[in-house]
């Protein structure tokens, strides 16, 4: 990131009401050039409403925001020209070919002549579809369709890109490939505003904001969020061959154990937040053994953003 960060998205007291319901409630933050900004929250917390306002699609009830220098309420047209937007519902025409979809977007962004041809070639390259330009979009696997949607949203080289759950339903390999592109774009100076329910992806954001019931309740780097909201020592407990039954036995044994602040299943393991006196080697395993779980292996682990999310949303 540049030494003098340039503010690209600036949000002050942004509020949106629908009747008596306050969908977005007095939200303020700013995003700098080249930053990957994660915007997290439960379904209905106000994430998409915020994005719709920042894209100039929905007028705020109160507060103000600028995106790439344009005021979202007074200059929504200028906002739309300086942003790219991609949602979970890939905005592509399934019955058109790859090239036809790009052509459609190139026209929408009024690209013409040599610039248009060059941008379309670059988009095909970015999507990894240079050799499949005549393939029907609906016949592409989900991961490639998503890369094409991203390339379409970037045709006009917007300084800011909004991604609303871009990887919902995408397999882990394709998600990794997608995030390599996202990080590359950020290194090149594009500002990215991303919502996701995959908290491993949120770990790749420079900063993360957490929305709960329309309010921005936390905003920090992933490391800062963990230090503030899930302090203490995190241990990871597995039962080897025990599988899901083993995991459930561990959770049952943890109930009411002194020094244990909370636990969550993560795949085949259980994350347990403990007081320092339980953190020493063998201590938690010994306590679990007293309660009938003899085969637990315990290792130290880092708290994840999912721990932060659960702590904030379930509070």
């Amino acid at each position: 990131m540049p030494s003098e960060p340039e503010t690209v998205v600036d949000v002050r007291g942004l509020t949106r009401r629908f009747g008596a319901f306050v969908a977005v409630n007095d939200v303020s933050f700013s995003v700098t050039r080249g930053e990957i900004f994660g915007y997290l929250g439960a379904n209905g917390a106000g994430k998409s409403t915020t994005i719709r306002m920042l894209c100039g699609l929905l007028a705020p009830t109160d507060g103000r925001a600028t995106v790439a220098g344009a005021d979202i309420a007074r200059e929504p047209g200028r906002v739309k020209r300086s942003i790219g937007y991609m949602s979970q519902k890939f905005s592509l025409y399934a019955d058109l070919t790859v090239a036809e979809n790009l052509d459609f977007y190139a026209s929408a962004y009024a690209l013409s002549g040599r610039l248009r041809a060059a941008r379309m070639d670059e988009a095909l390259e970015l999507a990894g579809l240079a050799d499949r330009r005549d393939a029907l979009t609906r016949e592409l696997p989900g991961g490639l369709r998503q890369r094409l949607a991203l390339a379409s949203a970037l045709l006009h080289r917007p300084p800011v890109l909004f991604l609303d759950e871009p990887t919902a339903g995408v397999d882990p390999l394709a998600r990794r490939a997608f995030w390599r592109v996202i990080r590359e774009l950020a290194r090149g100076g594009t500002t990215l505003f991303v919502t996701t329910h995959h908290l491993d992806e949120a770990e790749l954001c420079h900063r993360v904001g957490m929305m709960v019931d329309g309010r921005l309740v936390a905003l920090d780097t992933p490391a800062g969020l963990k230090a503030t909201h899930v302090p203490g020592t995190m241990l990871s407990v597995g039962t080897g061959a025990g599988g899901e039954a083993g995991t459930r036995a561990v959770m049952a044994a943890l109930a009411g154990m002194p020094g244990v602040h909370g636990w969550q299943p993560f795949g085949l393991r259980v994350h347990v937040r403990v007081d320092p006196e339980l953190a020493g080697p063998g201590r938690l395993a010994a306590r679990l053994a007293e309660r009938g779980v003899a085969t637990a292996d315990v290792e130290a682990t880092e708290a994840g953003l999912e721990d932060v999310f659960l702590a904030l949303v379930r509070r």
Partner: peptide
Amino acid sequence: TNGVDPVSRR
């Protein structure tokens, strides 16, 4: 659970 937040998913 596509599109479902982490709390609801659990």
